[in-house]
Design a protein around this nucleic acid. Structure first.
Lengths: 272, 272
DNA sequence: CAATCTTTGTGCACGCGTTCACAAAGGCAT
DNA sequence: ATGCCTTTGTGAACGCGTGCACAAAGATTG
């Protein structure tokens, strides 16, 4: 999952709607849209929950924050619910979006159908490379970074997507914020610092893989019949073991069994 | 953030390490790697927390689950911590990964440097389109879906990335699982159902934007000086208002002020 | 109209995650 | 060696999110 519930005092629950619920509304909306296309008139919380991959009690509680939109003994009216959730999420209006950084990922995002289909309109593609300027990507001509401020103010854009290399992300972010952007979706592997009032959500592909690797390793370790207790300072992975740990500070060394010191590099961990 | 902490009894905390902590370890690792490149020998929890964008108390508690790797009065040894976290995440070994669905997004993923740099090796690219077969993407020839099972078993792949259209995702998922994949990173906008023991993490670009839109709308609404209380059944968005809500079930209608019924479509919400 | 059946909406309890705040631990200067 | 200063590691309190379980509400049937 894209992590990104940062900065924003735990009391974030906007308008009494818990953050966790907001994050699930798009899920419900998608399931409801699918039902709507099949002309299904009503759904029970059980059916809809199953389609959205959540618990039915959770779903009912989520909807209770929006209001009483169901009918006991029957369920929820699909069309009506689609509208209510869309309205709550702000999808009944058009959101112009700019994408900055038209590399492989930026181009893929520009072509991604899921944006346009949910009320998001790609207003502009921006890149720092002059040779890209004017070239159409997904039918939209790429514009140079110099135009950034003008594009944003002219189009009244409030949502920006950053798909630049990590090194350029903070700088781009600063310019976006200065130009009036108040919501940022960041694909660059960096922590962005933004002023109060600006929302940042982060999608990091490699982080997701690393989390999977953790669980994968654990599964493999359990298969080997290792004891449940963790063994700090001792490798859990069966084979493919790499260089021993670098030398910890003196005090820590004395605490641990003296492993063969070898300040080698760590092949698996390279610069981003 | 990519949501994806599904299915897995709340007692998921693998080996005593809380899920929330695991999700932050890659963040710490990235910050530490950057410090390592600058040859910084030690960091305090305060400095590292700031670099990773988290609270220092949280960071210390996170590290406490791994063991006592710090030195009081000094801080943490950068190199040592890099190794310990890498080992905990399972990054000291090589993880072959297959990417299924080589469209715009799949190609972008194949080119993404963040994978290879963290111990993940793209073992194969797979697509159902025969005309793609053999064509190199990011230096790797695309193979046809028919080879899927063979590729996975031959390479001992346990992590799969799904970047296909939504319609094909579940089918691909089933084949991956049957072939031995136990961890899946899903970019398709669908809920995947998998057997027990298979981990799925989901990255949904449009969901992230929808969550941003929610907060953006709320900001705009507050600017208009509206009262803090929510007004169910009344549009909050200033202009750009679309069709009125579809007719709710009879009972619900009586509860609400009779809005002008108009079973129109909802322009902002279209099929995925 | 009354009885029954279905499904919502929610009060309540529990557990995880976050944060505070401080004692313990180690470095460093004298 | 002794005392001071810095920073870790963690006990404890708090708040959010989840799931259970049930009463209330409405549909439906006879």
């Amino acid at each position: 999952m894209a992590t990104g519930r940062n900065h924003r005092p735990a009391t974030s629950r906007s308008r009494g709607i818990p953050e966790a619920t907001v994050a699930r509304l798009p899920l419900y909306l998608r399931a409801l849209t699918a039902l709507s296309e099949r002309s299904v008139p009503t759904v029970s919380s059980e059916e809809l929950a199953s389609a959205a991959g959540v618990n039915s009690a959770k779903l009912r509680k989520d909807f209770s924050y929006l209001g009483s939109y169901g009918t006991r003994g029957v369920g929820y009216d699909v069309e009506y619910l689609v509208y209510q959730i869309s309205r709550e999420l702000g999808l009944t209006q058009d959101w112009p979006v700019v994408i900055v950084g038209i590399g492989n990922l930026g181009a893929a995002l520009a072509n991604y159908g899921g944006f346009a289909s949910r009320g998001f309109r790609v207003a502009a593609l921006i890149d720092a490379d002059p040779s890209l300027a004017g070239k159409p990507v997904a039918g939209i001509p790429v514009q140079h970074t110099d135009e950034l401020e003008k594009i944003i103010s002219d189009n009244g854009v409030s949502i920006g997507v950053i798909a630049t290399p990590a090194g350029a992300a903070q700088q781009v972010c600063d310019r976006l914020v200065a130009a009036g952007i108040t919501s940022i979706l960041n694909f660059a592997p960096t922590v962005l610092s933004v002023p109060e009032g600006v929302d940042v959500r982060k999608v990091d592909l490699s982080i997701e893989l690393q989390i999977l690797a953790f669980h994968e390793q654990r599964k493999a370790g359990e298969d080997l019949g290792g004891p449940p207790g963790r063994r700090p300072g001792e490798g859990v992975h069966p084979e493919t073991d790499t260089a021993p740990p670098a030398a910890p500070p003196a005090a820590a060394v004395t605490k641990r069994p003296p492993e063969p010191g070898n300040d080698g590099d760590l092949p698996a961990v390279m610069p981003a």
